[in-house]
Every structure is written in structure tokens, then in C-alpha cells.
Simulated assay, not measured.
Amino acid sequence: MTFPYTGWVLMPSFKPVETIFVEAARYSEGWHRSEGGKTYSTQNIYATKDAAIAAGHIDLNQQQAALDKKQANINKRRAALEKAAGEAKP
């Protein structure tokens, strides 16, 4: 990789932002430093805006799957409590 180069990153708000990277981060393999001084993992730097957006959709799908799994566990626990409460009543 030659510096400087332009890449796309997703902000915590999932907004894709074009960023210029000026050097490899010192003491951190696989990280690049932007003009503003912030470091980004090379796994989170994308060549195009479309690639960053696609990665954001994949991440959101993974987050949704994790939430669905947690909701299923909550529903099972609620059912167990309701069953126990129904058995306790004469």
C-alpha cells in the first residue's frame, strides 16, 4: 500500500465517509492513520462507498440475528415463568 491513499470508512452512525490515509499506524500492524490522526483497522477501510455500504448492511444483519436470538431466549424464559406461575395456582 502506498501512502497517501483515499478509502471509505463507516462512522459509528454507519454514515460512509471518504478519508485520506497518510501512513501505517506505528506499533499497530494492520492499522492506518488518517489525515486527522485517527487510526482505522485495514479491515474497516473500503475502496468504494458502495463497498462500505455493503459492509454496513452485513454488519446490521449480524446485529439483527444476534437480537433475534436474544429475543427467542427471552421468550423461552417468559414461557417458563408463566408455566411455573400457572402451576403454582390451585
Rank of each mutant, 00 (worst) to 15 (best):
R33A: 01
D68Q: 12
H32R: 05
F14E: 09
E87M: 09
L10S: 01
Q63C: 13
D59Q: 08
R26L: 07
I20V: 15
A51V: 01
A84W: 07
V22N: 00
I53A: 08
R77I: 12
E35W: 05
W31K: 00
I20C: 09
A47E: 10
K38I: 00
Y40W: 10
I58S: 14
N44D: 13
F14I: 10
E82V: 08
G37D: 01
S28I: 13
E82N: 06
R26G: 10
F14W: 08
K89I: 13
E23C: 04
F3R: 14
V17Y: 05
N44F: 07
S13Q: 12
Y27T: 15
Q63H: 07
G36N: 07
N75S: 06
N75W: 01
P12N: 01
A66M: 13
Y5C: 14
G36R: 11
G37Y: 01
E29H: 15
Q63K: 14
I74W: 03
S34R: 08
L67C: 07
F21P: 03
E18H: 10
E18S: 14
S34H: 07
Y46S: 07
L60Y: 06
G7V: 10
K49W: 01
K38V: 09
A85S: 01
H32A: 15
P90G: 04
Q62V: 10
E29Y: 12
R77M: 15
A55F: 10
Y27M: 15
N73A: 13
N61C: 07
P4S: 03
A24N: 06
T48I: 10
N73Y: 03
T2G: 12
K15Q: 15
K38R: 12
A79W: 02
R26W: 05
D68N: 14
A55Q: 04
G86M: 14
A25W: 04
A55E: 10
A65G: 04
